[in-house]
Design a binder for these strands. Structure first.
Lengths: 173, 173
DNA sequence: CTAAATCTCTTAGTGACTAAGATATATATC
DNA sequence: GATATATATCTTAGTCACTAAGAGATTTAG
């Protein structure tokens, strides 16, 4: 087997492995939402709030791909559960900032403990240098996926009949 | 800063980076489902079928965490779209095997091309040895997440009042 | 042969979503 | 400063995928 062929096989295995683990990651998230008793998108928004800090309702819609109307519902539910707070922007009173209530949100955070422990255990087998490689990959991978998402969204804006031969019409509900 | 503290910081960064990229992965999947015009769970099932091959309806329910009733709906929609076929098991006629229709499912596969291209580009910057490290990590990470999911599911089966101090009752709808 | 178990499907009801438009506030133009 | 347009969120009506419960079909155990 040639050297390049070995690499191709490696890449394919890698793709499958990543697909599998990311699928399992999705299932973990679903389980968290289930245990917490909140909807999946609600948890997704909590995650965004955790990563981005205080964000506007519109920004949540933008990032999640939900309509602003749906976000109103998400925030209503999260607010009722005491997980977030609505705060009107004093400078631009149309805007509503959503921020987490740390004391309550902590309880959600605890549901990630099994995951963190599992990952710590995995990480413990790697040297600092190896971890830096993984970090580099995660960072670059994120950018790649982000770009790919934008590319794919581009297809949505292209009128269906002009899309490059996917012929998806028959698949639509 | 001590050596262990540096590592702790590295681990934290790594966790954030992985969280971000996996969240973006979820969004990519949502976009695929959107462009294809199928529901999110329908796509998830297509993914499972791709990874596991021909599986029973019950197995789909098990892996996705949906009820068997919901799976009936998923398979109905996928079958109507021509993406899968139902096949009764001749040996045990209660079972229904679901298998993809390759010619049609290919069209869904094409929606992953932007992602594959992005990842190829990322991978191209790594040596074979580095890729092997990534593969090892993806494989171990999968096992870790799988175990963590099971651990978390365990909480669901524990009666709420016996759960280790999460006090989630107030969060339930 | 009967009872229990297993696997999928059906039904009724619920909840989260979209599309469209209402409301409130901000910015631009005259 | 008044009017028109733009922006940000919320409301409403309708839709679709989900769950819970149980029915139907088949297999396995006694």
């Amino acid at each position: 087997m040639s050297r390049t062929k070995a690499r191709a096989a490696l890449l394919q295995e890698l793709e499958a492995a990543m697909r599998r683990s990311s699928a399992q990651g999705v299932l973990y998230g679903q389980t968290v939402a289930n245990v917490a008793g909140i909807a999946n998108s609600d948890l997704e928004c909590m995650d965004i709030l955790y990563l981005e800090g205080r964000v506007t309702a519109g920004r949540l819609a933008e990032v999640t791909g939900l309509t602003t109307g749906a976000i109103t519902g998400v925030v209503d539910r999260l607010e009722k559960a005491g997980l977030v707070r609505r705060e009107r922007d004093e400078k631009d009173r149309r805007k509503v900032y959503i921020s987490v209530v740390p004391e309550t949100a902590m309880k959600i955070g605890q549901l990630y403990v099994p995951m963190q422990q599992a990952m710590e255990k995995v990480f413990s087998a790697y040297s600092d240098e190896e971890l830096r490689l993984l970090l580099r990959f995660a960072t670059e991978g994120y950018k790649g996926v982000l770009a790919a998402t934008e590319a794919l969204k581009g297809l949505l804006d292209t009128p269906p009949e002009k899309r490059p031969d996917l012929k998806l019409k028959k698949l639509r509900r």
